[in-house]
Structure formats: structure tokens, C-alpha cells
Amino acid sequence: MMQEDGPKRVVGSRVVKVLVHRRDDRGMSLEPFASRCVRQGEVHELVTTDQTDTTPGARIDRVGFLGFVEIGNAGVIDRGDEVRVDGRLVGTVLGFDACHHPNHYNILISTPEPRTGPEVGMNPELPVVFQPA
């Protein structure tokens, strides 16, 4: 079996807006890509879900919205990366939804139940990192 992934840098970001709502009928669609490159200064949305299907095009309905983050350093975010808010583990990257791209990606985060920004202690300027598990 050929190994594809080597070591990578942690992608740092900061909260720019906290979101407080959830939905059971969102209808996001999982992109066929297990990783996305992000650039310094980009803003992306963080969305939690308890759904686990990683099939390309899988419909993601049960979601909690965490908020938006500004990327602090360019890097690669991979499915399975840990997402930490102010050092606390929130979940792992499930994949990406591009319904708002090129404005931003929805970065889908696997959690036991959909959670919102206040439920994970998000506040503007808190650090959020994406790092290998």
C-alpha cells in the first residue's frame, strides 16, 4: 500500500463571528475531496454534525453552527483532523460543503451531537486550530 500523507503544519485560525442556531433539514452535500487547501486571511464556516457518512455527495441535514474563522496561516485541512477551540477538542473534520464557495467553505466537523458556538465556548478572537489527530 502506498502512503500518501506525510507530516504537515497545524492550521491556525481565529473566531470572527459566533453562530447560535441548528437545523435538522440543512441539505448540505459532502464534497468528494478529503482535504482542502486554505490560504491566510480566508474566512470559512464551521458546522458540526452527528452524521458520519463520508460518501461523496452525502446529504448532511442535522447540523449545529459554530461560527466563522479567519485562517491565520496557509495549510491543508484533512478529513480526520482534530478541531480545537481555545485548546479544547470539539471534534474531527468530516469533510467540506461548497454551497457558498468561492465565498467560503462549510467545514463539517464530526461531533456526538450537533453543537452551536456558545455550546463549545466560542467567542470572537479565540484561537481555533486544525491539527492531525
Rank of each mutant, 00 (worst) to 15 (best):
H104V: 07
G57T: 04
T54C: 03
G95F: 13
L19C: 04
N73Q: 07
H100F: 14
G117L: 08
D78K: 15
K17Y: 00
H101R: 14
T52M: 07
P32S: 12
M122I: 03
Q3N: 03
R84L: 13
G95E: 06
C37Y: 08
G12W: 00
C99S: 15
V18K: 07
F96C: 04
E70W: 08
T111E: 05
M1R: 00
P127L: 13
A34V: 07
Q40S: 13
D50V: 02
F130H: 14
T52P: 01
R115Y: 08
V85T: 09
L89I: 12
V128T: 02
P7I: 02
T92H: 15
L89H: 13
V47Y: 14
F33P: 01
F96H: 06
E113C: 05
G41P: 00
V76K: 15
N123C: 12
P114S: 10
N123T: 12
R59A: 14
R36C: 02
P32H: 12
V43N: 04
V69C: 03
G75M: 10
G6D: 08
R14A: 11
S35Q: 15
G67Q: 07
S13Y: 00
V43W: 02
V83K: 10
T111C: 11
V18E: 02
L46A: 01
N73V: 02
E113Q: 11
F130P: 02
T54A: 05
V90C: 08
V120F: 06
Y105G: 02
H44L: 10
P114T: 09
N103K: 14
V20C: 04
V18T: 05
T55E: 15
A74D: 09
V47N: 12
D97H: 13
P7R: 05
R23I: 01
T55Q: 15
I109F: 12
N73G: 04
G72Y: 10
H101S: 13
L46R: 00
L30F: 08
H104L: 11
T111M: 04
R84Q: 07
E4D: 08
P112H: 08
C99R: 15
I109T: 05
D61M: 10
R39C: 09
T92C: 14
S110M: 09
R84D: 02
C99I: 13
T48H: 09
V20S: 06
M2C: 05
S35P: 08
E113V: 05
R59G: 02
P124M: 15
M122H: 03
V18W: 07
G72I: 09
T49K: 06
P102M: 11
G91N: 12
M1L: 05
T116E: 03
E4F: 10
T48A: 14
T92G: 07
E45T: 00
T111L: 00
P118L: 12
V120P: 04
H44K: 07
R9H: 03
E31L: 13
V20F: 05
E70K: 15
G12Y: 09
E119H: 02
N123Y: 10
R9P: 01
G87C: 06
R115A: 06
G57D: 03
I60F: 10
R59C: 13
T111F: 06
L108P: 10
R22M: 07
L94W: 08
T54Y: 00
D78W: 15
D50G: 04
L89Y: 10
R115C: 04
V90H: 11
